[in-house]
Computed example of a mutant assay.
Amino acid sequence: MKKTLRYNYRLNPTPEQEAKLIEFSATARGIWNLLLSENMRRYEYDKTFLFYKEMASLLKELKPCLLYTS
């Protein structure tokens, strides 16, 4: 029996779609780095971490700021 381990897809976005994908990835990377630095800061301070629930509540607070930065 042959198992398929993965599927490969190729995207051919329009220039507008490509710009949106680049913007989305930059925003996601920025959010990741922000939450990572917050976790590192907290761990250095009191050896605790932010978990999903706390991160989600932080994202709700950040959402209005992220919508109007572009």
Rank of each mutant, 00 (worst) to 15 (best):
M1T: 10
M1K: 04
M1I: 06
K2C: 01
K2P: 07
K3L: 14
T4R: 04
T4L: 10
L5W: 01
R6Q: 12
R6D: 10
R6G: 11
N8L: 14
R10S: 11
R10K: 10
R10Y: 14
R10D: 08
L11P: 12
N12M: 04
N12D: 12
N12F: 13
N12R: 12
T14A: 08
T14W: 13
T14L: 10
T14N: 01
P15G: 08
E16G: 08
E16L: 07
Q17D: 10
Q17L: 05
Q17V: 12
Q17S: 07
E18W: 05
E18A: 15
K20Q: 15
K20I: 13
L21H: 04
L21D: 00
S25A: 14
S25H: 12
A26P: 00
A26F: 03
A26Q: 12
T27Q: 10
T27I: 15
A28K: 04
R29A: 10
R29I: 00
R29L: 04
G30V: 00
G30E: 11
I31G: 03
I31P: 02
W32N: 11
N33L: 10
L35N: 00
L35R: 00
L35Y: 01
L36R: 15
L36T: 12
L36A: 12
L36N: 14
L36E: 15
S37R: 06
S37M: 05
E38K: 09
E38H: 05
E38G: 04
E38M: 10
N39F: 00
M40N: 10
R41P: 00
R42C: 03
R42D: 06
R42Y: 05
E44S: 07
Y45L: 12
Y45E: 09
D46F: 06
T48I: 07
F49Q: 11
L50R: 03
F51P: 06
F51H: 14
F51D: 13
Y52W: 13
M55K: 07
A56Q: 08
A56Y: 03
S57D: 15
L58Q: 12
L58N: 05
L58D: 02
L59T: 03
K60D: 08
K60N: 11
K60E: 12
E61A: 15
E61H: 15
E61I: 09
L62M: 06
L62R: 03
K63N: 09
K63L: 14
K63Q: 14
P64G: 05
P64R: 01
C65N: 04
C65K: 15
L66P: 00
L67M: 04
Y68I: 12
Y68Q: 06
Y68D: 09
S70C: 09
